[in-house]
Design a protein around this nucleic acid. Structure first.
Ligand SMILES: NC(=O)c1ccc[n+]([C@@H]2O[C@H](COP(=O)([O-])OP(=O)(O)OC[C@H]3O[C@@H](n4cnc5c(N)ncnc54)[C@H](O)[C@@H]3O)[C@@H](O)[C@H]2O)c1
Ligand SMILES: NC(=O)c1ccc[n+]([C@@H]2O[C@H](COP(=O)([O-])OP(=O)(O)OC[C@H]3O[C@@H](n4cnc5c(N)ncnc54)[C@H](O)[C@@H]3O)[C@@H](O)[C@H]2O)c1
Lengths: 211, 211
DNA sequence: GGTTTTTTGTGATTTTTTTCACATTTAATG
DNA sequence: CATTAAATGTGAAAAAAATCACAAAAAACC
């Protein structure tokens, strides 16, 4: 199996390509993609080499073809359906975000334990948690997003799995764990900010010691 | 300099420890932290070894001491101030999120180009973009969060830097670039979801080929 | 107080990832 | 149509990260 950061990079290349296409670019060089993704040109070509993507020596890559190939690899050749559990501040922002649909990602329904959040009339229906399993099965959904408080996150995951969810993005600040064969990614924004704080402090120290 | 994923892990350990403390844990073993962070016990001890954190052979680590040491390393021994630019759906969710303040991260002010978003009376004042530089300088803020549309992200960064910002978390789906010495982290949620889609598809293929 | 058991701490080893170096292809140029 | 210049593609080398293996420490037990 291929490694996570390599796949993340493929996804970044694809995003950059989509932007280049709107600017009417027809061809692109590894150098350009490297810039857009914040990596080296060699890395781009190596990544492509791993996945058997080839361009034209001297002419670079054709934007259209490359997007198509990347979409195929990333499983984005069809629309992928998600459900989201936890219609609080963050859940609402995600459900309303138009960028997902533009990228072939559709949030089919939201769920919450709180009756005040339910709303079947909106563009994305918000349903009681009890209907989770039924909706997942009916739409054959494989992917979920968790935006409930930390104490509820693991139990929400354990509701999703038996209904058929096989991949989850979790925003609650704990590492939730799925069974073998279930892909779980935990995003912790506090951790991301702490990471920035650390490296800014570290670079301050380097500068001081150089003086 | 130490590597990014190592620092991310330190932050995860710290988060797990805070939770353990609320459950009245006094001591903890590398095994427990490994579980909470989704890594191996050896990895935990190696990380600690790198930063000179020591425990007690047989007795593990004291939760309180460990939190303090990690906070020191992560620069969290004082409250860290942030500003946020782009008070849309995502920006609003982040500004209202109580978890940041609980972790010693304070969003001092929000900024937007749109006058309808301005509001100096709320718990976090939302100000016109023109005041960005002044606020950063007055509060001596070093960190920023970008939640504006993609086309505006790079120019927002370039407003922040001369005012004194040295670390940025960007949510717009492009890789913004700061000058040398400025730490920028680009979070792309579409990319995160695509990553999950990829690995679920990959594991499906593995299973099929095993049958 | 000696023995056993448990857990840390870390050099050595292995694995993974990135970078280098350069042959190969192809477009452009004269 | 030969020459040159500019890019790709990829084995080999280097660097970085993770894991192993085990000695050292310390608590628990008899
Ligand atoms: N808001 C942010 O910017 C932000 C930032 C970082 C992390 N997070 C994390 O994301 C998660 C959501 O954050 P938020 O600010 O939107 O919180 P929130 O409190 O606004 O929303 C949580 C929602 O989950 C619902 N809920 C609670 N238990 C549930 C259950 N068992 N099943 C279904 N729904 C349930 C609540 O009714 C509520 O609507 C939290 O874990 C938080 O720590 C949020
Ligand atoms: N909402 C989400 O869940 C989500 C998910 C993934 C990525 N993102 C990304 O995060 C960013 C924000 O998303 P959103 O949904 O909150 O968008 P939004 O359109 O709701 O909000 C954007 C805000 O930025 C403000 N703005 C625009 N240009 C500005 C400028 N030059 N200076 C200051 N403010 C400016 C707008 O007035 C608006 O208030 C976007 O780049 C989006 O792609 C959002």
């Amino acid at each position: 199996m291929t490694n996570r950061s390599c796949v993340i990079r493929l996804s970044r290349y694809k995003n950059a390509l989509l932007r280049l296409r709107t600017l009417n670019f027809v061809r692109v060089f590894s150098e350009n993609l490297a810039d857009a993704a914040g990596v080296t040109a060699t890395q781009v070509r190596k990544d492509f080499s791993i996945f058997g993507i080839t361009g034209n020596r001297r002419g670079g890559y054709k934007v259209d073809e490359l997007i198509e190939q990347l979409n195929k690899i990333l499983g984005k050749d069809k629309i992928q359906k998600f459900i989201l559990v936890g219609m609080g501040n963050l859940g609402k922002a995600l459900v309303q975000y138009a960028g997902f649909e533009r990228s072939g990602i559709k949030i089919v329904a939201g769920f919450d334990i709180d009756a005040n959040k339910w709303d079947k009339e909106g563009p994305v229906p918000i349903c009681p948690l009890e209907e989770l399993s039924e909706v997942i099965r009916r739409h054959e959904i494989e992917f979920g997003i968790i935006t409930v408080p930390d104490f509820a996150a693991q139990q929400v995951l354990e509701l999703m799995i038996p209904a058929g969810i096989r991949g989850v993005l979790n925003f609650a600040p704990i590492c939730v764990k799925g069974p073998e064969g279930c892909v779980v990614n935990n995003i912790n924004l506090v951790t991301e900010l702490e990471n920035i704080i650390y490296f800014v402090n570290a670079s301050e120290k380097t500068q001081e010691s150089q003086q």
